[in-house]
Design a protein around this nucleic acid. Sequence first.
DNA 1: TTGTGTTTTATTGCCTCC
DNA 2: GGAGGCAATAAAACACAA
Length: 277
Amino acid sequence: MKRLSSSGSLDALISICPPKEEKNSKKKQIYSREFQAMLDGLEEEDSLEEAGQATEKKRRLSIGQVKALEKNFELENKLEPERKVKLAEELGLQPRQVAIWFQNRRSRWKTKQLEKDYAILKANYDALQLDYNNLEQEKEALTAKLIELKDKLKEENSESSHSIKEDSPNFSQQNKEHDFRDNDDDSNGINKEESNANAQLLISPASSSFQFNGSSSSSDSSNHHWFQPFDSRTILGNMYHPQLVKVEEQCMFTAEESCNFFSVDQAPTLQWYFPGQ
DNA sequence: TTGTGTTTTATTGCCTCC
DNA sequence: GGAGGCAATAAAACACAA
């Protein structure tokens, strides 16, 4: 026993003796089991006589006592001296037992709390990991698409510069007009193509990450305007894919035009197409 | 019944606060 | 320096499979 407090000195003294005797009796187990049991029995009788009371074997608290202690612990997990004495009297325990119970209870509570905190941290970590993986996939897909489109633009530029040399100086304008007539009776044909081209550029096979972290794309819109149409890219991909092939074939944007197209202050959100969103 | 793992009660030593 | 808290640990009590 480390200290004898003024309030608990007696019960502390009482609780000192039995454990030490138990320890000694364990160390003395050099005889046969039966003989040892007999010796232990004699020792117990001796200590009974010495103490003049029932042996203080380690006993579990009753359900009622534990319930009352739990209730008090919920109210306040630390124990003022007056409360300790009062509680001990109410439950028929030594104040020291109450103090020990609170100490052990605090320890258990702390362990549980650590486990909870760990579970929360792990869940957050896993979510972040998933998010990161999705973004990585997204990035790879976009990079591949970008390379593909750059190559296509190069090809088309070289082809058009070839034909400009061969044909009349008005070829480009005439050709564009011809395309518009062929493509569509709709007077908004070019707008549609722009939308489609826009959608095609931004379509990605990995589509889940923005739902997961949707704010990232919109909050960064001042820096990355071209990200915004992603919100609906999956559906766009399904709906417009056949036409997009056509757009790719007929796309006559130069590199500069493409850059201008993507650097508008506010990119189209395509909400006109998804009224519910 | 017994071996083994878990929970609960209690002790010990160290530390901080007043 | 005493009182009380905490971490580490011991040991008894308990649960449970084999």
